[in-house]
Amino acid sequence: MTGTFMMSADTPPEELDWGKLRWMSHPPSTGAGQLTVIEVNITPGNGHDFHKHPDQEEVIYCISGKVEQWLDQEMRILGPGDSVFIGAGVVHASFNVGYNDAKLLAILGPCVGDQGYELVDVASEAPWKDLR
């Protein structure tokens, strides 16, 4: 396979209680094996709570907005053009602390499972449940 175009208009968003995802590349949409790419929109005051990807590295790139980004127990505020690299198995979380939607690009690799994405929620566990 040489690749495929993924047009935004043809890629329906997945609505979540904290925002929405648009799967720009993953095994079901492109046949990708090494990279899963997700456009992430987080609504104001919401976030993708503490979780990890045991077998995947991730880069989160902030396109717009103001994001409280956690990397293990360290927190920084990301703005447009800022990014974070997250090693496999490292707990992290992203919260929109701005007044408008925050738009991020999440790039994970390698693809894991049928969806190309694995997630372990740890938000209810110590120390993550007490960090914010």
Rank of each mutant, 00 (worst) to 15 (best):
S94C: 08
V90G: 04
S8T: 12
G65R: 01
T2G: 12
G113V: 03
G109N: 07
G116M: 07
C111M: 03
E74H: 12
D130Y: 02
G109W: 04
N46S: 04
I86E: 07
D17M: 05
T11D: 04
Q34G: 08
Q34K: 11
V91Q: 11
V90A: 12
F5L: 14
V112M: 07
G19A: 00
L16Q: 11
N46M: 03
I38H: 10
N46Y: 02
K52R: 13
A123S: 15
E58S: 13
G109F: 05
Q69E: 06
M7R: 13
V112D: 02
L105A: 10
P13Y: 01
I77Y: 06
K66E: 08
V91T: 12
F50W: 06
V97M: 01
M1W: 04
H48D: 04
L119G: 14
E125G: 15
H92Q: 07
M24T: 08
T2W: 10
G98P: 13
V97A: 00
S8N: 10
V112Q: 10
L71E: 11
V97T: 02
A93R: 05
V84P: 10
S124K: 15
P54E: 04
G19W: 00
T11Y: 04
G109P: 08
G79L: 02
K103R: 15
I60V: 14
D82V: 06
E15C: 05
A102L: 00
W70P: 09
R22G: 12
A88C: 08
P28I: 01
E58R: 04
D82K: 02
L35S: 01
S25I: 14
E118D: 12
E15P: 05
E39K: 11
H53P: 05
W70K: 09
F85M: 10
L16N: 08
V40G: 09
C62Q: 10
G3M: 15
H53R: 06
V112T: 10
Q69V: 06
C111E: 01
E57T: 11
I107V: 15
A93H: 08
Y99V: 12
G81V: 14
M1G: 07
D101R: 00
Y61K: 14
C62N: 14
G45M: 02
E125Y: 14
L21K: 05
V37N: 15
V59C: 07
G81K: 12
K66P: 04
C111R: 02
M6H: 04
Q69H: 12
S124F: 09
Q73F: 06
G47Q: 01
M6Y: 00
N46A: 02
S94Q: 09
K66D: 06
G109Y: 06
H53Y: 05
E57Q: 13
K52H: 11
D121V: 13
C111W: 01
W128L: 12
I107M: 15
P28M: 00
T43P: 00
K52Y: 09
I86N: 06
W70F: 13
S25P: 09
G87A: 09
G19V: 02
D82L: 07
W23E: 03
G3C: 15
D101M: 03
G45H: 01
I60T: 13
F5M: 13
G65K: 01
